[in-house]
Amino acid sequence: MALAKPSVGLLYNPAVPAVLDAAGTLVDHIEVIPDRLWYDFGTGAEHRFSHAHTAIAELGRFAGRHAMIGHGIGLSLPSAMPIDEDLLAEVAASHRHFGYRWYSEHLSMFLAPGGSVPNAQAGMGLPVVHDAELLEIVGRKVELLQATLGVPIALENGTIFSAVPNPEMSEPEFMNRLHERTGCKMLLDLHNLYANMRNLNWSPAEYLGALDPEIVIEVHVAGGDPLRGHYTDSHSRRSPAVIWDWLEEWGPRFPNLAAITFEYHESYHKRIGLAGVVAELEKMHAAAEAISGAPQPTPAFA
């Protein structure tokens, strides 16, 4: 039996409307970061959230023509503190407005308690310790997200610049066990894996081979830049060629893969260019067609 064709889409940013107006027929879905649709003045503010009504209206122009997926950055599920219920309520309101097919967050820590600041922003995704304690913390929050939003939840593998030594379990094992406990899916960011290969000498074949293929619901592709001896997930270029090789090899092994999404930051739109974004979309469509035409592999994961 052949696999279903994954949808092809873009992570939404202020430059994407120009792409959608010029080449919207190549875009099946739009992935939305709801945190970018409001200004958050912090937990102590009298009026905490100020909504970006112009941005919401602009996004709404495309919501009827494209499927919508939610991709959050603010809930920081691995943080050892209660989930921010006010922020979760804003995410839920965004979901009611746009109707996300599923909702993803990151398996990275963005919030850390710091003195009198109850939820200090780290400024970047920090690595986490993959152990039983974290599995319990993340598992409870995933279950709360599932109950609140009523759609599948996925977690994205992160970019790591400094590995945690001697983890209790690998990242793929953690993702597998989280899925066993909660049904949580995985957003497999191939560019993050590429960055970890370059920075930490990770083996992509070992990483992907250790994943339960059933859990992967979405794939991200992107490009980045080196900076001071590290390779960054800056979303600043087209995807490296090896990422397409991985997608060709591994995509047909993920029977529940439903979407492929290209990420780029609006500040690099001029560098990549409309033609570059269109070329990425065309390559994603070719990959999706190849995946849908491939015979479903016999499950080998146990």
Rank of each mutant, 00 (worst) to 15 (best):
I160P: 13
R177N: 03
A132D: 12
G224H: 08
H230A: 13
Y39Q: 10
P252F: 02
N166Y: 05
L75D: 08
L88F: 04
D21H: 11
L10D: 01
A89L: 07
K270T: 14
A290N: 15
D212S: 11
I137C: 00
W102R: 00
M284A: 15
E248M: 02
T159S: 12
F254Y: 15
E214W: 14
L145I: 10
A2D: 13
E289Q: 14
L257T: 09
L37K: 04
G114Q: 08
L257P: 07
I33D: 00
G114D: 05
T159R: 07
W38H: 03
G276M: 08
S104P: 00
P226V: 06
A222G: 04
F41I: 04
P152M: 05
S170D: 09
I217H: 14
P82T: 04
R177D: 04
L77D: 09
V142A: 11
Q121Y: 08
E90T: 14
V32T: 08
P14Q: 11
H71G: 07
L187A: 01
R237T: 13
A294D: 13
A93Y: 00
G72W: 03
R96S: 08
A45S: 12
R198W: 13
V277E: 11
I272P: 09
H179E: 00
E143N: 10
A147G: 03
V221K: 01
F262E: 12
I217R: 10
A122P: 03
Q146I: 02
A302R: 15
A275D: 15
A22Y: 00
A222K: 10
H130I: 00
L134Q: 11
N192P: 06
P172A: 14
M169F: 09
G123V: 15
G223N: 12
H220C: 08
I69A: 12
Y194V: 12
M109R: 01
E133R: 15
S76Y: 06
G60K: 07
N176Q: 02
R61F: 07
R228M: 15
P252A: 00
S292L: 03
I260H: 02
G99Q: 11
N192D: 12
S292T: 03
G24F: 00
V16W: 00
H47G: 04
H71Q: 08
P299N: 04
T148W: 11
E136N: 06
E289V: 10
L155A: 13
E133L: 05
E31K: 00
M175T: 02
F98T: 08
I137A: 03
W246A: 10
T298M: 07
D28W: 00
F110N: 05
L26W: 09
P167A: 05
P252K: 00
I83P: 15
E105V: 05
V142D: 05
G64W: 09
N119H: 15
V117G: 06
T159M: 01
